[in-house]
Simulated scan of single mutants.
Amino acid sequence: MTSEVRSALGDDLAQAKASTPSGTVSAEVVDVTDVGVNLNLGGALLLDVPCVDSYRNRTAGDWVAVRPGARPVVMWRLGEDPGDVDEATIRSLAKEVALDEQVIRAATWGTAAPAGSGWQTVQTLFLRKGAEGKVELYGQLASQSDTSPDAPPARTPKPVTISPTAYGTWRGGRPDDYADYPMQGDWTGRGARRGGWFYGSKIADACAGKTVARIQVKFTRRRGSGVNAKRPLHLYLHNYQQPPSGQLNLDDGPDELIALSVGATGTVTLPSSWRSQLASGAAKGIAIYATGSRDYMAVSGGSITITFS
């Protein structure tokens, strides 16, 4: 944004402030960035607007109150009381922390020997360490005067986040040494770029023996490439554990699952067919590719979060 445009925008915002009794104006969050949010304010795209600390859980589509001025600031989110949602989130997190910290997972008893393997006997007390490292106790009784509580069900495996082991950009059938991050599109007419993220065998290894419920990928659209407005990522699968020395060939795609404005970070949930391929190892990683300048951009991130059921 040039100094002239910024100055004119500041004047407009100052006038808006003067005309609003509360001293704030409403705006819609376009995207969340690493330093604030991108806003749609009366049709103008404001980039990296800072937010007060109390504005948490920021999400594209939020309506917020903005304090106008030469340097606008987001003051609070508009909408319903988030108390109920916050309470459910806090309770869920507290339960996970308690289960992580407890040493004994289960204590049961009965007259028969315990079922399963791994038990160690101390007279009539049995104990073992489960898959999560939690201790399980079982007491074998000569006679039983009270029923044993049921052992709690096994926990669903915790989500796993996998960072890429490598990433890069290809143009003209070979790695593009002039690109520091994965890119898509063609800004100069010298050829369309395609970018990729690589994970070795870590995705399939993390999914082995588990039921995968969801796979999500987190991306950040980098500043300094393409137009500032929201543009879609053209996503593909690829079948490389490591960056190829020649062309990066693409598999399933394209799928426009997410669009980001400049500087924004967003998370996309992959479709079930892509989830199955990555979990089984039939696909190895994620790529982006577009032609022309409209959707030209550089993208970082690429961390994958796998949720199990």
Rank of each mutant, 00 (worst) to 15 (best):
208 A>H: 09
241 Q>Y: 13
25 V>C: 03
49 V>C: 11
244 P>T: 06
169 T>N: 00
212 V>Q: 05
254 P>M: 08
184 Q>E: 06
270 L>K: 04
71 R>F: 14
256 E>P: 03
173 G>D: 05
192 A>T: 00
281 G>P: 09
151 A>Q: 01
20 T>Y: 14
198 F>Q: 04
241 Q>F: 09
164 P>T: 12
61 G>P: 07
118 G>S: 05
257 L>R: 02
220 T>V: 10
175 P>A: 05
7 S>C: 14
166 A>L: 06
71 R>E: 15
210 K>C: 00
252 D>M: 07
82 P>W: 08
39 L>N: 02
291 T>L: 06
94 A>C: 12
118 G>L: 03
57 N>E: 12
219 F>K: 06
106 A>F: 01
108 T>F: 05
95 K>R: 15
200 G>Y: 02
59 T>E: 15
195 G>A: 09
293 S>P: 10
74 V>L: 01
29 V>N: 00
176 D>Q: 01
154 A>V: 12
66 V>F: 05
56 R>H: 04
174 R>V: 14
21 P>F: 09
166 A>P: 08
95 K>Y: 13
90 I>D: 13
250 L>K: 03
69 G>F: 05
168 G>V: 05
139 G>S: 15
259 A>Y: 01
62 D>M: 06
263 G>N: 10
136 E>F: 02
71 R>W: 12
59 T>V: 15
189 G>L: 02
172 G>Y: 10
82 P>T: 00
1 M>K: 13
131 A>M: 11
241 Q>K: 13
136 E>I: 08
164 P>D: 03
44 A>V: 15
281 G>Y: 02
275 R>K: 13
